[in-house]
Simulated scan of single mutants.
Amino acid sequence: MSISATDVNKLRQMTGAGMMDCKKALTEANGDFETAIDILRKKGQKVSASRSDKEAKEGSVFVKTNDKGNEGIIVALNCETDFVAKNEEFQKLGSMILEVADKNKPASIDELLSLKSGNLSIQEHITDLVGKIGEKVEVSSYERVTGDQVVPYIHGGAKLGVLVALKGVAGGNFTEVGKDVAMQIAAMKPIALDKGDVDPSVVQREIEIGKEQARAEGKAEAMLEKIALGKLNKFYKDNTLLNQEFVKDNSKTISQMLDSVQKGLTVSAFRRISVN
């Protein structure tokens, strides 16, 4: 059957797909719009599958806190090119995923992808966008944090995001100091909150490395353990948030800086995610 330009344009407005794709879908569907939409969605699924081996190292990080400011959500939506990351539809999709996550509080990315917005699941919305743009799109990270006060931070053109959960606020508002801590996390990349939060396997690896370094320097075997533990303390100072030197005032650690702002103020949790 003959497909009019008006019908093609109407389907394009409904779906955002290309003109030729819309014409082919309508022709295959004998002019039925619902069937044509399904055909386009199936095309998207095929595109998604065909690009599953591509690297999606661009994208945007989206963050949101609730009205009380005691819970935050952070989502990283990846794509293949920075051009697509700046696309309005891509940004709308990221914001929509964030809203769905905030409303439903899923426990994992898989659970998030199964949630619905309108008649489609998040994964189906992603698949539809893949069909339109021809690039791999995926949710690479999703985290939720709670605390007395949760402070969000976006860095580097939305390529990196941080959530900081503060404890001991005692009814005060510590947004600015929370942002200082978030900026520290963005720049210094701590691997854990405090010494006791470092994975035991990492601790053991650092001890063994310290011993080997000391042995290579010709230190006595009886001294290796002590030297390695000294190096481990340096590792904690460099890599655990509360023990890091505060970038804005290196005479204090993060823990000391927070306590100087208000007695007992500290960080109970943080999340740092990026799209590359």
Rank of each mutant, 00 (worst) to 15 (best):
N250K: 15
V145E: 05
I273Y: 06
I3A: 06
G18M: 13
Q184C: 05
E99V: 10
T81P: 03
S268P: 03
D67T: 14
F174W: 08
I74T: 01
L129G: 04
L241N: 04
V139H: 00
G161D: 00
A170W: 00
F90W: 06
D102H: 11
S48Q: 13
E245A: 15
K234H: 09
A187P: 09
G210D: 00
G72A: 10
M14Q: 13
I126H: 06
G72C: 09
I122D: 02
F90E: 00
F270G: 02
Y236N: 10
T127S: 12
N87W: 01
M257K: 15
I97A: 11
R144F: 09
L77G: 02
I209D: 05
D199Q: 10
R271K: 15
V145Q: 00
H125K: 02
I37Q: 10
I73G: 02
S95K: 10
K237C: 11
I74R: 07
L26C: 07
D67H: 13
K86M: 03
T65Q: 06
G118F: 07
V202F: 12
Q213F: 03
A214H: 08
G147S: 01
V145I: 14
I109S: 00
N250F: 09
N87A: 04
A216S: 14
V137L: 14
V203Q: 07
K237A: 15
R272W: 06
F246M: 12
V203L: 09
K159A: 14
S4C: 07
M96D: 09
G134M: 06
G118D: 09
K42R: 14
A17P: 00
A29M: 05
G264C: 07
G131A: 02
Q184H: 09
A192W: 02
V275R: 09
G69P: 07
L163W: 03
G196F: 06
S274R: 10
A222R: 11
V267L: 08
R271Y: 11
T6I: 13
